[in-house]
Amino acid sequence: MSDFDTAIGAAASGMRAQAARLRHVAENIANSDTPGYRRKTVSFEAEMARARPTGSVAAGPVRLDQSPLERIYDPAHPMADPDGHYEGSNVDLLIEIADSREAGRGYEANLKMFDQVKQMSRALLDLLRR
């Protein structure tokens, strides 16, 4: 049964990592109009046990996108400099929507793998009961 546990653990870790990615994408979209907001990105890292890869992944540290902030001209804005500009965010909604779809599909793929392993283990138990 350890192979089943390993497969379920890998699928569950993938779902957790994609859920973390979706949370950051949602936060980026919510703050896309916040002045000075920098887009957050998260990478995945392989989990290790006894210096060997386990097949599981985890969300890595959150990083701030260092691309330049958009300069917006609005002299009436309270954060505007003497020239009438202020720094907006560096969030591109098109990229965020694409990232959310990719993360959603990754989550669904891990969920299907989880269900398949569960069905296989149930079928094995049924065979052993006969």
Rank of each mutant, 00 (worst) to 15 (best):
V42H: 02
E27K: 07
D99M: 09
T6A: 09
G88M: 00
A123P: 11
H24C: 06
P61M: 08
S89G: 08
L94W: 03
R39W: 06
L64S: 05
M79P: 06
V57M: 01
Y86M: 12
E96M: 12
L94M: 12
E108F: 02
F44E: 00
T34Q: 03
P61T: 02
A30G: 07
M1V: 02
L22G: 09
S2Y: 13
A7M: 05
M15Y: 02
V62L: 13
H24A: 11
G106C: 01
V91R: 00
D74W: 00
L64R: 11
F4Y: 13
S67K: 05
A80I: 01
L128K: 09
A103G: 03
S13Q: 04
Q66I: 02
L111P: 12
E96R: 11
R21H: 08
I29Y: 01
A80G: 05
P78E: 03
A98E: 05
K112N: 13
R63T: 07
G60W: 13
Q119K: 06
H77G: 07
G60T: 07
V42F: 06
P75H: 02
P53V: 13
A103F: 07
H85E: 08
D33F: 11
F114D: 07
I72M: 02
L69Q: 04
T34F: 07
L93K: 00
S67H: 03
L93C: 08
Q116T: 14
R71I: 10
R38E: 02
F44A: 02
T6H: 11
A46F: 08
M48K: 03
I97D: 13
A49T: 06
S100Q: 14
D74N: 12
R101Q: 13
R129Y: 06
I97V: 15
T34S: 11
L22A: 12
R38Y: 03
D74T: 00
N110A: 10
V62S: 09
D81R: 13
A51M: 14
L128Q: 10
E87L: 15
R122A: 15
M48N: 00
S56G: 08
A103W: 12
T54A: 01
A46D: 09
G60V: 08
R23C: 00
M48W: 15
F44P: 02
G36H: 00
Q119W: 01
D92M: 10
Y107E: 12
N90I: 08
P75M: 07
D126E: 13
S100D: 02
G88R: 00
E102I: 03
K118W: 03
S56F: 01
A49M: 02
G104V: 00
D83G: 12
T6V: 07
D81H: 08
G36N: 00
I29F: 01
S43R: 14
S56N: 14
T34M: 09
I95A: 15
Y107V: 09
G106K: 07
P78M: 03
F44K: 06
R71F: 11
E96N: 10
N110H: 06
G104Q: 14
E102T: 04
A30Q: 04
P61Q: 11
R23K: 08
E70G: 02
R16H: 14
A30L: 06
L124K: 10
V62F: 08
M79K: 15
R101S: 01
M48S: 03
P68K: 05
A30V: 11
L94A: 14
G14P: 10
G60M: 15
A46H: 05
